[in-house]
């Protein structure tokens, strides 16, 4: 029983780190990993999802619906921003950095001015479970399940639906897709919206566990960029193993040496991966398969 409790504790920590990395990076993986847009407003999409989730949950909506609501609103906002700003900046990565950074500043400060410096939280549901002599938050187990569900869902969407095939074709060979009659502008818009909705979903899922402030998105930013960079261009081959490896590094360093070394380990891992595998894990995995 003692052994089981210890193994559960370690698995829980790994799963918790893994879930945070996967959920926070999913939106960025679509927008940055697939579409190649460096989106510095990623954190603000997350904040948008969290705020909408909290507001609708407080208005009486059940939490799962409120989270979907948050994702939906973030997705719509994302599509609007794609239509007005980002669309004009494809293939201009430096300009897209400036533009999305500007959007991020406007969003943070705008929310601060309009809604004030904090928003009341909604409380974590589901209570706790006890294993051995320690107790754990049950909602965190839901987050782990959500992370796995997210990976499976995205895989099915991009590899087993018509939209997925068209989206991948549009992003890899836009001229050819257009020649075959695909409305590529619409696909770009939808894909960007999907990325924003996934970011909103991350905000919604973590909203019950966090402080609601306009800058809350920034606590996701480092982890999500690190995961996407380590994962490489193909999110489905790269992101899941990247999140798994980084979660092991982070959870074990945090357990042995504390939070500071967990953060350092994460950043050192990226430096090494960029140096040794410039294409990220996915490029390396694909090459070794061939």
């Amino acid at each position: 029983m003692e052994l089981f409790a210890t193994i559960f504790a370690m698995t829980y920590q790994f799963g918790d780190a893994f879930a945070f990395l996967v959920i926070s990076c999913a939106g960025l993986a679509v927008i940055f990993g697939m579409m190649g847009i460096i989106n510095l407003a990623h954190g603000e999409f997350i904040m948008c999802g969290a705020y909408v989730t909290a507001a609708s949950a407080r208005a009486g909506l059940p939490l799962p619906l409120a989270i979907l609501c948050g994702a939906l609103v973030a997705g719509i906002v994302g599509m609007a921003i794609e239509r007005t700003v980002v669309r004009h900046l494809y293939h201009r990565p430096l300009d897209s950095i400036i533009a999305t950074w500007g959007i991020s500043l406007i969003a943070t400060q705008g929310v601060l001015i309009v809604l004030g410096s904090t928003m009341q939280g909604i409380g974590t549901p589901l209570g706790s479970i006890t294993v051995g002599d320690r107790s754990y938050s049950a909602y965190r187990l839901v987050l782990m399940a959500a992370a796995i569900g997210l990976l499976v869902g995205l895989y099915l969407l991009f590899y087993h639906t018509r939209f997925g095939v068209i989206a991948r074709a549009t992003i890899q060979r836009p001229q050819m897709a257009r020649a075959l009659g695909v409305d590529t502008r619409r696909i770009y818009g939808l894909t960007f919206g999907l990325g924003a909705a996934l970011a909103g979903l991350a905000g919604g899922l973590y909203a019950p566990t966090m402080t609601m402030v306009p800058t809350m998105g920034s606590t996701f930013i480092v982890e999500s960029f690190v995961t996407v960079v380590v994962g490489g261009a193909d999110i489905f081959v790269g992101a899941a193993p990247a999140a798994a490896i980084l979660a092991v590094i982070k959870a074990s360093l945090t357990a042995w040496y504390g939070q500071l070394f967990g953060q350092i380990g994460l950043l050192v891992a990226v430096i090494i991966v960029i140096r040794v595998l410039p294409g990220g894990l996915s490029a390396w995995l694909k090459r070794s398969k061939q």
């Binding site: 974590t124 965190r140 402080t211």
Partner: peptide
């Protein structure tokens, strides 16, 4: 800071008590 204040919610849901 606002980020670290997330501790209380997380500790309560894990029933630190």
């Amino acid at each position: 800071g606002a980020a670290q204040a997330s501790y209380y919610e997380q500790a309560a849901s894990a029933d630190v008590g």
